[in-house]
Design a protein around this nucleic acid. Structure first.
Length: 737
DNA sequence: TTGCCTGACCTTTTT
DNA sequence: GGTCAGGCAA
């Protein structure tokens, strides 16, 4: 978008190039303000200008707090404020980043060690696994990801359905014990998980002596982007920060709410006025991004949602070319088709970085990557967190975290024997026992390993490790890069990789070097940066922080990662039933509507050209699966699309509109193998062969019933949707006839 | 204590 | 297709 004619000396330029609604939003008096901004309606521009306008009205830049969804969005915001005097002292960051900032300064008022380190998902899972092994070993069947999800669900306000079914006898107590021990371990190790960053921030504002007042006094103006994706805790944080009637601007679009599974509640933006006791609302409906046809298709999809406040986007661009819909026979063919389409764009003069491929699940990137490589098209998979999740990077960061936070047991256990220093399970168990008995961190107990009964190789190894960490701690003012290099080399970690017989292992050295280089960059850009800051940034990188500008490469990303971005040319790949909507969400109340929004978000990333592709079959870990086009494709207005369907080998040709209704019910498929299969009675008697009705899949025939009670699963052959496995507890299944 | 093999079991989206 | 627990030999 064109930059403003605004200069510090020419404030009228602040609003001169805005439309009426945008201007109303930017210049609304400082008080509760909600901006409902449809896709492509200039949301970022309004947010930036409003900050500038507030400052121009006399607000001190450092009294402005702008909360964005990603670090990258925060950086962009600050860049655009560049012309503003004092613009760099506006606080811009994510909720989690702000939480960390707040807790480092004021956490001590509620008993938080301000030298805490942040536990990411991987660390959290490691810790939970240890705890599960202690408290629920063996057959308990409690799985780490489920327990983590349950914990997060509880911490985020318990809205919607619980991830974990705890009604089996004793389960509740077991979970309770796990949750308690988890909290104890975190506290003892000065660790905070992602949710804690928010929860403890609220607590410090409420309970921390004087903290709330200090912050309310400082941040007189708070602005929040992507408000439709905030959860209850984030809302509470804002309500603590902004007094009733205070200057709070929230910007968002209910149609783009896609993080319900993370506790986000669309209710925050919808109930804004009740929450804040009044306030203004401005609706932005003029779209500057997409062509008429793209918008018409996107609107047709989202219009089917019932839980929405209808708004009508009007484009400022022309009709554009039709939205293309392509069918492929399998995933490889789809990849080649996408690559071929991209090649044509490039030949027509598009730069590769004008093009994005968006998919529902990250696993979908593989086939597309392969095809792009075949055609020598430069691409990049957007996965900002991926680098920091690599084993070698996490190992080195664990060393660094121990330097910063000696109590961090999770990190200690991670690297105690990496590289191998003869510290096996037996020695480690002795040290952990000793640490437990003495009530000290494990790293502390390791220091006196001999007392714990450790000897020989293991003792020597632990001594060396302790000495290394001490050496790194001795000069905390050293540049971060130097500390990392010392750890990588002094520990023998780098040597371990370099001398490996495995080529993959040897290649990991590059990532270690890259991490050091990354730190060096940071040292140069911000000379005063401390190790703790570096670790915090590493823990809070977001997917989108990895999106490249001017990289000259096609960008591949998930629909979630694509939020807030725009590209001239977009391919939405894998537009199939099972991915759009995803199978796992169709059973959940409101699940389909969220999937529809997700598809809407993906489509509305496109400025000029939009291509949708799907495949008739796909290889999964269970073998080949037949796939049907996404039901959302059926909503596309035929006049705005162009269908490319080369008479596929199976599945029949696809055309827009609702699926043909089958007039005759499908017969239950023969039960293969078992002669005279016994019809099983389940609960209130679901019987194989029953005809059933599902709110989404429609009519089908019960094929199989498995599991008991809570876990009863039914397999149903649906007319037009194929065979589906459903959890009876969740599926709103009705018997018919 | 370590290295290596085999079989079981999942896979949505992410700060 | 990838991870992870468990078993077993050196």
């Amino acid at each position: 978008m064109a930059s403003a004619a605004y200069t510090p000396g020419n404030p009228s330029g602040l609003v001169a190039d805005l439309n009426e609604a945008q201007r109303a939003a930017v210049t609304a008096p400082p008080g509760p303000l909600r901006v409902v901004a449809g896709a492509g309606t200039g949301k970022t521009r309004v947010l930036t200008r409003r900050v500038a306008w507030l400052v121009h009205q006399g607000a001190a830049p450092w009294s402005v707090l702008a909360i964005t969804f990603t670090n990258k969005a925060a950086r962009v915001l600050k860049e655009r404020l560049g012309a503003l005097p004092g613009g760099e002292s506006v606080y811009a960051g994510t909720f989690h980043g702000f939480g960390a900032w707040l807790l480092r300064r004021h956490g001590d008022t509620i008993g938080i060690d301000t030298r805490f380190t942040i536990l990411d998902r991987d660390d959290q899972h490691r810790l939970l696994k240890l705890i599960l092994d202690e408290l629920a070993p063996g057959e308990g069947r409690l799985r780490v990801p489920a327990v983590a999800a349950q914990l997060s669900w509880l911490k985020n306000g318990s809205s919607g359905r619980a991830p974990l079914a705890l009604d089996r006898s004793g389960m509740e107590d077991v979970f309770e014990a796990i949750a308690t021990r988890y909290a104890e371990r975190l506290r003892a190790a000065s660790l905070l998980d992602f949710d804690d960053l928010l929860l403890e921030s609220v607590r410090v504002l409420v309970e921390g002596a004087g903290v709330g007042d200090v912050l309310r006094d400082r941040f007189r103006h708070v602005l929040v982007d992507e408000y439709q994706d905030t959860n209850r805790v984030q809302r509470d944080l804002l309500l603590q920060l902004v007094p009733p009637g205070g200057s709070l601007t929230v910007v968002g679009d209910p149609d783009q709410s896609i993080y319900r599974w993370r506790g986000a509640t669309i209710g925050n933006i919808l109930a804004f006025e009740e929450d804040l006791g009044g306030g203004n609302t401005v609706v932005l409906e003029r779209n500057y991004r997409s062509t008429g046809r793209i918008l018409s298709c996107a609107e047709a999809v989202i219009a089917k949602n019932t839980e929405r406040h209808a708004k009508r986007l009007v484009t400022s661009k022309d009709e554009g070319t039709p939205v293309e819909v392509h069918r492929a026979g399998d995933a490889d063919e789809e990849g080649r088709l996408v690559a071929a389409r991209i090649r044509r764009w490039v030949e027509a003069g598009r730069r590769p970085d004008d093009i994005a491929v968006i998919y529902r699940v990250n696993a979908a990137s593989r086939a597309i990557e392969l095809a792009l490589r075949e055609r020598s098209l430069p691409y990049r998979v957007v996965a900002g967190t991926e680098f920091f999740q690599r084993r070698e990077v996490k190992d080195l960061l664990a060393y660094a975290r121990l330097v910063e936070n000696p109590a961090d047991d999770v990190s200690f256990l991670r690297i105690a024997n990496v590289p191998r220093r003869g510290v096996g399970d037996t020695s480690l168990a002795k040290i952990r026992q000793r640490a437990f008995d003495q009530g000290v961190p494990i790293a502390e107990a390791a220091r006196e390993a001999a007392t714990a009964g450790v000897s020989g190789k293991a003792l020597k190894g632990l001594r060396e490790l302790s000495q290394l960490l001490d050496r790194a701690r001795a000069q905390p003012r050293r540049p971060v890069a130097a500390i990392l290099a010392l750890l990588a080399e002094g520990s023998g970690y780098k040597a371990m990789l370099e001398t490996s017989h495995d080529e993959l292992e040897r290649s990991r050295v590059e990532n270690v070097d890259e991490l050091v280089a990354f730190a060096r960059q940071l040292d140069e850009r911000e000379p005063d940066v401390e190790l703790s800051t570096f670790l915090e940034r590493a823990a809070l990188v977001s997917e989108q922080d990895d999106v490249e500008e001017d990289g000259g490469r096609v960008q591949l990303m998930s629909a979630h990662a694509a939020k807030g971005l725009e590209f001239p040319c977009v391919v939405v790949a894998g537009a199939e039933d099972g991915w759009f909507p995803h199978v796992r969400s169709v059973d959940e109340p409101g699940g389909i509507e969220e999937e529809r929004r997700l598809f809407y978000v993906a489509m509305t990333r496109a400025e000029d050209e939009l291509v949708l592709t799907f495949s008739s079959s796909r290889a999964t870990y269970r073998g080949f699966e037949r796939r049907l086009p996404s039901p959302f494709l059926g909503d596309l207005p035929p006049a705005d699309i162009e269908v490319h369907d080369r008479a596929p080998s199976w599945g029949g040709a696809w055309s827009p509109g609702p699926r043909p209704a089958f007039s005759t019910p499908v017969a239950p498929p023969p039960v293969s193998g078992v002669e005279g299969e016994v019809v099983r009675e389940v609960g209130s008697a679901w019987t194989v062969g029953d005809r059933v009705q599902h709110p989404y899949f429609g009519e089908g025939v019960l094929f199989d019933v498995g599991g008991r009670g809570e876990d009863t699963r039914v397999t149903v052959d649906f007319v037009g949707h194929g065979r589906r496995q459903l959890l009876l507890r969740h599926a709103r299944l009705e018997r018919i006839r």
